[in-house]
Amino acid sequence: MTEKERKNRYIFSFVLLALLLGLFGVLNLCMGSVRLSAQDVANALFYCADTPAGDILFRIRMPRLLSAMILGGALSVSGFLLQTFFHNPIAGPFVLGISSGAKLMVAIFMILSLRLGNALNSWTMIAAAFLGAMLAMAFVLAVASYSGRISVLIICGVLTGYFCSALTELFITFADDSDIVNLHGWSQGSFSGINGSNVRVFSIVILFSVSAVFLIAKPMEAFQLGEAYAVSSGVNVKRLRICLILLSGLLSATVAAFAGPVSFVGIAVPQLMRNLFKTEKPIIMIPASFMAGGVFCLFSDLISRVVFAPTELSISVVTSIFGTPVVIWMMLKKQKEVKAWD
């Protein structure tokens, strides 16, 4: 591919992503378990009528589709950061035990708060999930600054996951059946409980985080060549590592806090984008992953809402169903290419 061809590919792919975002955004707005006629939609959009249709559109569907877009993008970028960190395309945001930490803290809060008599406030639950995720991540960070070895970190992440799960099980023995059901429901992940003010809060956090990620795009690219080469280029590798984990953790903790754990997006989407754009340059991959993560989650959310309406499929089920074959197919394709070069 020449440089010109490459540039064209980038432009084409970004335009494609933008179109898909638009398309699924509109579809998610117009489709749902409630049938809204075109007339209803038009009235609500143009006359801002205070109709039930308008409420459904703007107070249920709109926050939901914005969540899918923004949180999906965040997960995807988080995955890309980790894959850069681990020099491994299979790394994902929840492989470091971050979602287990979030679940543990939610379980603790759920049980404590009912015991103390007050029902769990939605902001408390969000704070709990976020706190749990960040604590798990802080632990991983501590290990990372002590030993930069990647195998150590992966083992640490897996162990954190097991440890948090075990503690969660322990707390569950003191829980009522309804707590257990609620916790199980939460850990399936969902974009549905989100309202306008939630959207405002996480949008700001994610905007801030993704901007910060752009600032480390350049050292990330050097890091992709390997640590030694990165150092020789003048990159402060230790600081970069911390930034990668911190930002990745912040992004995925935010998602876990508002939507629960949503699996596969962080792994499948960046991989898909690498294949689409045929590059792994961070300055391209960051916006590409963000947009594609949004598309993927919008699509998955649409499926989860519509297929068994009026009941809803858990979002993780859908993302896993669609994510797995894609990743397997790509891995097989890669294997074939590798063989060809032997």
């Binding site: 440089e3 020099h87 690219e221 050097a222 992709q224 060549l225 080469y229 690498r274 590059t279 792994e280």
Partner: peptide, 14 residues
Amino acid sequence: PSGEWMTVREIVEN
């Protein structure tokens, strides 16, 4: 380095 999608030019540009 073992990069999947890096081109010669990108590496030299680094």
